[in-house]
Amino acid sequence: MTSRTQLTAIVTDLRIGLSLATILPLGPSTPVGDGDIARAGWTLPVAGLLVGLLGAAVYALAFVLGVTPGPAALLALASTIIVTGALHEDGLADAADGLGGGTRARKLEIMRDSRIGSFGVCALIISLTLRWSAVAAIAAPRSVLIALLLAHVAARAGLPLFMALVPPARTDGLSAGAGRPAGANAAIALGLGALALAIGFGPGKAILAVILLAFIGLLTTWLAIRQLGGQTGDILGAYEQVAETAILLMAASLFHTSP
């Protein structure tokens, strides 16, 4: 493969990943085929980097305009939700509703239903409140930038590995259609997440963050296999939300300061 061909493949993967993870009109000009999403899985942390940068920019702008940390944090959070089309929030809500259902078939049916139930509402309220309070507690714009970048990059870094190791619960749907990423793609995504954590938290704290994310991944895997027989797009979204919240809370404990 020539350098030009390699560059074209990388750009195509980036466009697929960004179009999947955000509402930005950056998708490739040709239709996405079977396996393309799995191949582009390594770009998900890169998409997270852009989402985190947007949230941090909104927070910094609000801070410059004299907005206090609480409302500024809410604006930053809103901007990340808008740019991602609430993709992961939707997954969290559907997963919470589904996991609270009856039989496996009923759980999958509930998760496919576009309506939101009590468990889904509660999960969203808890997630949004924790993330908002964490960013507001960090307060200082530079620290908020680091926290948002780490949260959005690291939370997406484990998704390709999760998709590779846990089989789809359905034969159709977003997760089944995406395919299962190759080990190399999952390793690249994990490497990007680990690198971000090492730069932002330092090596020692980064190890703790990796252990925390691994625990979240194992717990999510256990729930998905035990209750659904595998993973779905909603389960992936739920994992991202829990991981993102965990990193923001860790950042709040480390970076808590006054602006």
Rank of each mutant, 00 (worst) to 15 (best):
F201D: 00
L223D: 06
T221Q: 13
G204T: 09
L195C: 10
A40P: 00
G41M: 13
T232Q: 04
L212W: 05
L99T: 00
L218Q: 09
G202Q: 09
L130V: 15
W222I: 12
G85K: 10
M1E: 11
M163F: 12
A189Q: 07
L197R: 02
R104Q: 14
P69H: 05
I81S: 04
C122I: 14
P31F: 08
L75I: 04
K107H: 05
I225E: 10
L24C: 03
I126M: 10
A214W: 12
A206E: 02
T257L: 07
T68P: 01
L149N: 00
R112M: 09
I37M: 13
P28L: 12
L24F: 14
L53M: 13
L161I: 02
A9Q: 10
L161A: 15
I37W: 08
G200I: 04
A187L: 15
G183I: 14
V166A: 06
V11D: 04
A251P: 00
L213S: 03
A147H: 01
K205C: 06
R112E: 10
A21M: 14
G48E: 10
G48L: 09
L18C: 11
L53N: 03
V242L: 15
I216L: 15
G101A: 15
A178C: 05
A252F: 06
A198G: 02
E109M: 06
L14G: 04
V67Q: 02
V210P: 01
L213H: 06
L20S: 01
V32F: 07
R226T: 12
V166E: 03
A209I: 01
P259Q: 03
I126S: 05
